[in-house]
């Protein structure tokens, strides 16, 4: 079976607009058309360059003038639960951690704390093992998504969902159940059109710590992770940091209990 694609599809694939079920055929078409493959790689590289150049702007301290325009002067910032949540989702607030930065909304340094946690380490280890699999990358495939999500939710003990990461260019491959210390963890594996994989790892944690977004890096792999309500969540992979971060933020937004309601 030879599926036909055009240059147009390179853009669609890159932008997550190509239907997930066509990605395999598209990959095969690229392999068969070296010119197109080079073009796709070039556009991908340019996009990553753009993301790398512009990404940091979102972590600059926001000028006080802008926040004042919105809040007026002397507004009561505390006790605004929904605002707080929204700000976390937008990556404005970052937990203070060893080697990280203090949080800053109206000013001061803002950034993503770099810290280690068993959840992040396990997520990266599990990612390394299973993302390298060719045949058995997942236990249950995306074609049985409802069953997969239901099963893992029951075993992990929280209502999970497999986030939609298509806008970030990743589609669900499937998932599996894993041991995590004395407990269990769920792993959802995603893949982009060129075969790069990232995984979402969710497990119960010992404490009920809450953190903002944190970054854990080990060798060439990294994980963005956060702890919330007795559970730890991590997005692990070896793709560029900007891509990982976009994916992690999208997953974070979709997995927030608040977001799950509406």
């Amino acid at each position: 079976m030879t599926a036909e694609f055009t240059e147009r599809d390179i853009h669609l694939a890159l932008d997550g607009e190509l239907p997930a079920e066509r990605l395999n055929d598209f990959g095969a078409w690229l392999e068969a058309n070296p010119d197109m493959k080079i073009k796709a790689a070039r556009f991908d590289a340019d996009r990553q360059r753009l993301q790398t150049a512009l990404g940091p702007v979102a972590y600059e301290a926001v000028p006080g003038k802008l926040t004042e325009t919105i809040l007026g002067n002397g507004s009561d910032l505390l006790g605004m639960r929904s605002w707080w949540r929204g700000a976390i989702a937008a990556g404005l607030l970052v937990a203070a951690a060893a080697g990280g930065y203090a949080l800053g909304v109206a000013g001061g340094p803002a950034g993503i704390a770099r810290a280690s946690d068993p959840v992040a380490e396990r997520a990266v280890a599990a990612h390394r093992i299973y993302s390298a699999e060719k045949l058995h990358v997942v236990e249950v495939g995306a074609d049985q998504k409802d069953h997969l999500v239901g099963w893992l939710s029951k075993r992990v003990g929280i209502t999970l969902k497999a986030p939609d990461l298509a806008p970030e260019g990743f589609s669900l491959v499937g998932g599996r159940l894993l041991p995590s210390g004395e407990k269990v963890a769920a792993q959802f594996m995603y893949q982009d059109y060129s075969g790069n994989r990232i995984s979402l790892y969710v497990t119960q944690t010992a404490g009920s710590d809450e953190t903002g977004f944190r970054l854990f890096e080990k060798a060439d792999a990294r994980a963005f992770y956060w702890l919330d309500g007795g559970f730890g969540y991590a997005i692990a992979g070896a793709v560029p940091e900007a891509t990982m971060e976009a994916v992690a933020r999208a997953a974070y937004r979709q997995l927030l209990p608040v977001a799950a309601k509406g």
């Binding site: 702007v57 979102a58 600059e60 802008l66 809040l71 507004s75 009561d76 929904s82």
Partner: peptide
């Protein structure tokens, strides 16, 4: 402060980034 102002505030980093690209 209401929810809408909070939502605008939360979007500031991205608005700034988009503006910087423009």
């Amino acid at each position: 402060m209401d929810e809408k102002r909070g939502a605008i505030l939360a979007e500031l980093p991205r608005l700034r980034r988009y503006a910087r690209a423009l």
